[in-house]
Design a protein around this nucleic acid. Sequence first.
DNA 1: TAGCGAACTTGATGTACCTCAAGGTAAGGA
DNA 2: TCCTTACCTTGAGGTACATCAAGTTCGCTA
Lengths: 231, 231
Amino acid sequence: MVGRNASGNEMEHSCIQRVPIFNHLEATEMLEVAKHAHSETYRKGETVYNAGEQSNGLYIVHKGQVKVYRLAENGKEQLIRILKPGEFTGELSLFKRTEHDAFAETLATTELCVMDRDDFQSFLMKYPEVALKMLSEFSTRLQVAEQQMTRNSLESAENRIAMYLAELSLQQQSETISLPISRKDIASYLGTTPETVSRKLAEFEDLGVIRQEGQRKIGVLNLEKLQEYSL
Amino acid sequence: MVGRNASGNEMEHSCIQRVPIFNHLEATEMLEVAKHAHSETYRKGETVYNAGEQSNGLYIVHKGQVKVYRLAENGKEQLIRILKPGEFTGELSLFKRTEHDAFAETLATTELCVMDRDDFQSFLMKYPEVALKMLSEFSTRLQVAEQQMTRNSLESAENRIAMYLAELSLQQQSETISLPISRKDIASYLGTTPETVSRKLAEFEDLGVIRQEGQRKIGVLNLEKLQEYSL
DNA sequence: TAGCGAACTTGATGTACCTCAAGGTAAGGA
DNA sequence: TCCTTACCTTGAGGTACATCAAGTTCGCTA
């Protein structure tokens, strides 16, 4: 961590304003939230928390990106998700006194708002709208996690990669998509290896479905064909 | 569905009493919940909902068991989870107007409490303790889903099966564990095939780690050895 | 813009697991 | 109790993908 700011100051306030679960609150309410938060600044590649460490707060991304992943005993890594501004992790600690079961690492210079566990429950009791927003967010994440689980066990690596590209293309609403993460991380997210990702991308290129334009840019020439892999 | 009861009667009340997210409420509050719930009765093997159908309520299991699964386009099935009494599904419909993305089917004669979507949000606003309980439940489920996802993509089928047995053994606190589901369903849950499950169980038996005693009973002879597969 | 290191690609080889197929066993209804 | 049916086991064969090992390209820093 590069810096840490005490609770209740300007930085927390701006952070809380940007976060979906809080941004509908009145100004005075936000100030109350800010009292229980502090901000932390990280450089690229730093560790926010490790599996096994005591978990004691809700981490909300203000600026930057955070990668959350797990490790198997054999050292293999599974990318769980990439947190973008407004998203959060560490929610389990709000309800149970447990250890982290994953690792969190910054992918860029990152500012986090950290909500202390203590008082957060009573805060939620006072502002049930916030609890509802969190519930909504959770149910979406649950759906995504279950979808991801299904894909990883039911679809071939080829299909998973095609689906991933198709999704990116739809998200980014563009002919050329820019990969948000490295091939290694894509592999880890999709439960395969970097080699396989490489080979399949080359295959798709041969088939005229995509065109690789540098490591992080991919032109989608035939979205329909990509989507066919998912049905 | 075999039967449906109107809202607010005795059956809903008993159902709501048993459910963890509601059971701390006062009697009068429970009655209020019951107003927005009705009960449904199913025989074994019946469909509660199908993927693609409009989702419009929270299904809470009162008695029996419900299996929630997804289908890939190739017809392969992935078991998401088995709902036991007190557990619920359909939560996404409370926050979004969406279709079900999974299938739910009863494994036995089953009674469900169904909470109507409408008013549930305002109910949660009125009783934030209930929202907190749901949040807690969600965060646990999220953790389980992410764990399951990691396992299915990082561990070998052999390890997954060993882990599954070890977990059952710990859960049931017994030398002989009784499998709660068929081999086909175990395979589906672990992202493998019934044949592989069969073979691996036979292997474990040859190694003297377990003893198969009929289709649904397994004696655990060497729990440590089983657990070694997970490290 | 040269040079370094990380990220990526490509090839050759191995293997865990899936698939298809057939026989065996257990459970439940008439 | 028998008979049916679904479930499970075992075998043989194929394959998608991982693994290991060299190259190659990219992108950053100086």
